[in-house]
């Protein structure tokens, strides 16, 4: 009886402590990942719609400013960039958005060659656990073979999946020193960037092209699902390869034969348009904050170029 009571009291105490601490952690976590929570809230909760969606990884999230696209192409754009995502998360975001909103005119999907070679998705999934009441989120976790049942029924248990970056980041966020809490941060419709972050870090160019040749069947299936949804809903799909700097005038190879061949084959069906940065402009190392992410000036340049491209596209094909 004594042990039974002890066990009961222990469970009560532990659950109370875990619940209380997780409430506190949640506050810090939302501060730390403000852009992600903002994106998810716009997709899953808000009813405000947009006619141009930007979906992709950190190169979209911190590289394309909807302001310039809206101003130049007269569109209503939203940035749904989500750091470290691959096709599975892109598909989820698109599906979830379409459930509560009318189909947009354009979908600008930021892609990279490596997305075609894996069925994994290494983005931070913790914020997605808050939306386990949505069937598409459950299916997403199932397709990636990731655990979701415990967080579905005991929401605070999601924190067992927290990584160390977040653990230490939360402490910074509580001190007001989180990545997106600085006064220097520029923020517009899902786009975030440090305004002062202009000086490029020492730039080491990538000297070799991607050489992987076997495309992952599951990655292709997910990608084709995105293409098919766009086709069905009448959305013009633009695939954006992120800009990469040139090394003193010498282009850095960004192509992969297997991906190129696949995209060319698919493009014959007029499924999408491919927009490589090389086809619109060259970017110098001074436009970057690291080997692949744009800095403030770089993002202004890239966003303006995309705006101009979309403007011309509309002129050519008036809807």
């Amino acid at each position: 009886m004594k042990a039974k009571l002890k066990l009961f009291l222990f469970l009560l105490l532990v659950l109370t402590l875990l619940y209380g601490s997780s409430r506190v952690l949640n506050v810090g976590y939302r501060k730390l990942y403000q852009p992600t929570y903002e994106t998810l809230s716009r997709i899953f909760e808000d009813t405000q719609s947009f006619n141009t969606l930007l979906i992709g990884n950190s190169k979209v999230e911190f590289g394309i400013n909807p302001f310039y696209i809206d101003r130049i192409a007269q569109l209503n754009t939203i940035n749904f960039g989500y750091a470290a995502t691959n096709f599975p998360t892109h598909l989820l975001l698109l599906q979830a958005y379409l459930k509560k909103h009318p189909a947009p005119k354009y979908l600008l999907l930021g892609i990279e060659n490596n997305m075609f070679f894996t069925d994994e998705d290494h983005c931070n999934k913790l914020p997605l656990y808050d939306y386990l009441n949505r069937q598409e989120v459950v299916e997403y976790f199932e397709s990636l073979q990731l655990p979701y049942k415990l967080p579905k029924y005991i929401p605070f248990s999601k924190f067992v999946f927290m990584d160390d970056y977040s653990r230490f980041g939360i402490l910074s966020a509580f001190r007001g020193k989180g990545l997106f809490q600085s006064a220097d941060i520029y923020h517009y419709k899902g786009f975030y960037i440090g305004k002062k972050n202009r000086a490029p870090i020492p730039f080491i160019p990538q000297s070799t092209a991607d050489t992987a040749l076997t495309l992952h069947a599951k990655a292709l299936a997910t990608f084709e699902q995105i293409v098919s949804i766009c086709k069905k809903q009448g959305i013009t799909l633009l695939l954006l390869f992120p800009p990469r700097p040139h090394d003193k005038g010498k282009p850095i190879p960004i192509s992969n034969r297997a991906v190129d061949q696949y995209l060319v084959k698919k493009q014959r069906n007029n499924s999408f348009l491919v927009l490589r940065n090389d086809s619109i402009a060259s970017f110098e190392p001074t436009h970057f904050v690291d080997a692949s992410h744009l800095n403030y000036e770089g993002s202004v340049k890239y966003s303006s170029l995309l705006g101009t491209y979309l403007f011309n596209l509309q002129q050519a094909k008036p809807q």
């Binding site: 009291l9 222990f10 532990v14 402590l17 875990l18 601490s21 924190f159 067992v160 927290m162």
Partner: peptide, 22 residues
């Protein structure tokens, strides 16, 4: 040492939960 026992197990749960690598 039942009191220490209780504390020991509680601390373990908190450490596992918040600092464990899953």
């Amino acid at each position: 040492n039942p009191k220490t026992d209780f504390l020991f197990c509680t601390i373990l749960v908190l450490l596992i939960f918040f600092t464990g690598v899953f």
